[in-house]
Amino acid sequence: MLTWIKYVFCAVYRILSVLLFLLIWEIAPRVGLVDTIFLPPFSKVAVAFWELLVTGEIFTHVVISIRRSLLGFGLGLCVAIPLGLIIGWFKEFERFIDPLMQTFRQTSTLALFPVFMLLFGIGEVSKVAIIFWGVQWAVLLNTISGVKNVDPLLIKAARSMGISSAALFLKIILPASVPSILTGVRLSATTSILILIAAEMLGANSGLGYLLFFAEANFLIPQMYAAIITMSILGLIVNYSLVAFERRLTGWKEEVPAGQ
C-alpha cells in the first residue's frame, strides 16, 4: 500500500509544474491579466482540441507530419551516422572536410528552404529534403565526438592483443560511440519536428504547421493553441520514446549516483 501511495505521489509531483502552469493559464485571462482575444483560457483551448479530436482532423494532420518527419529523419540518419564514423576515425579526412562541414553547419536551415523549394518545388520532396538537411548536424557532430572520445586505454589494450583495425572499429569504437550517437539522434528528432512545422507553415495544404498557420490566419485562436499543444505532445512522445530506447540499448553503462 505504501509503495502504491509513493508511486502516485511521485507521479503527481513530476507533473505538478505542468498543472500549475495550466492553472495560471486558465486564471490569467479570466481576471484580465491578459487579453482573452489573444490568449483564451485553457478550458476553451481544451474544448477546441477535443473538437479537433472528435472530427478526426487533428489525426489527419499528425499522420501527414509524422510521415514527412520520419522520412527526412531516417534519410538523415542513414547519411550522418556513417559519415560521422568515417570523419571521426580518419583524422586526415576530418582535416580535409571540417572547413566545409562547419560552413554548412553555420548556415540557417530555414534560410535554405527557399533554395530547396526552387530545386524540388513546393511538394513533398522539398519538405523531406529540408528535414534531411536540418537533422544532419547534431547527429554528425555527436557521432564524430563519440568516436574521438573513446577511452584511449581501451584502444591500447585492444591493440596490445593484436586486434585488426577493422575489428577494433567494430568491437571497440562503434559500441563505445553509441551513447553519443543516440544523444545526437534525440536532438535531431526534436529538430526534425520543428523544421517540418516551419516548412509546412510556408508551403503546404496539410500537416500540423499548415493547421497552425490556417488557424492563425483565420483568427481561430483556440484552434491555434490546440495545434501548438499537439506539437508539444508529439515532441514529448518522441523524446521519451528515444530516452527509453537509449536506456535499453546502453544498459551496460554505469550510472553515476547523484551528487558525485
Rank of each mutant, 00 (worst) to 15 (best):
M1A: 09
W4C: 13
K6S: 10
Y7D: 09
R14Y: 14
L16M: 12
L16I: 14
S17R: 09
L22I: 15
L22S: 10
L23F: 12
A28C: 04
P29M: 06
P29L: 07
R30D: 07
D35S: 15
D35V: 11
T36L: 05
F38V: 05
K44M: 08
K44P: 00
A46V: 15
A46H: 08
F49Y: 13
L52Y: 02
V54D: 08
E57C: 05
I58T: 02
T60V: 12
V63H: 10
I64G: 00
S65H: 06
I66C: 05
S69I: 15
S69D: 03
G74W: 14
G74K: 11
G84S: 06
F90R: 12
F90Y: 14
E92L: 11
E94A: 12
E94Q: 15
F104N: 08
R105D: 03
L110A: 12
L112R: 06
L112K: 06
P114N: 14
F120A: 09
G121Y: 04
E124I: 03
E124W: 01
K127T: 03
I131V: 15
I131T: 02
F132I: 00
G134I: 03
A138Q: 10
L141V: 14
N142A: 04
T143I: 09
T143S: 04
T143L: 04
S145I: 00
V147L: 10
V147F: 01
K148F: 02
P152W: 13
K156C: 03
S160A: 11
M161L: 15
M161A: 10
G162Q: 09
G162D: 07
S164T: 11
A167H: 13
A167N: 13
L168A: 08
L168P: 01
S177Q: 08
S177V: 01
P179W: 04
P179V: 14
S180R: 07
I181V: 15
I181P: 01
G184D: 03
V185H: 02
L187Q: 11
L196G: 00
L196P: 00
A199C: 11
E200L: 07
M201W: 01
M201A: 00
L202G: 00
G203E: 08
N205G: 10
S206G: 13
S206K: 05
G207N: 09
G207W: 08
L208M: 10
L212D: 00
F214R: 14
A215R: 06
E216A: 12
L220A: 09
L220K: 13
P222I: 07
Q223M: 07
Q223V: 06
I228S: 11
T230R: 02
M231Q: 04
S232A: 15
L234V: 15
L234Q: 01
L234K: 01
L236Y: 07
V238R: 02
V238F: 05
N239G: 02
Y240C: 03
E246R: 09
R247F: 08
T250F: 09
G251V: 15
E254P: 00
E254S: 10
P257Q: 10
Q260R: 14
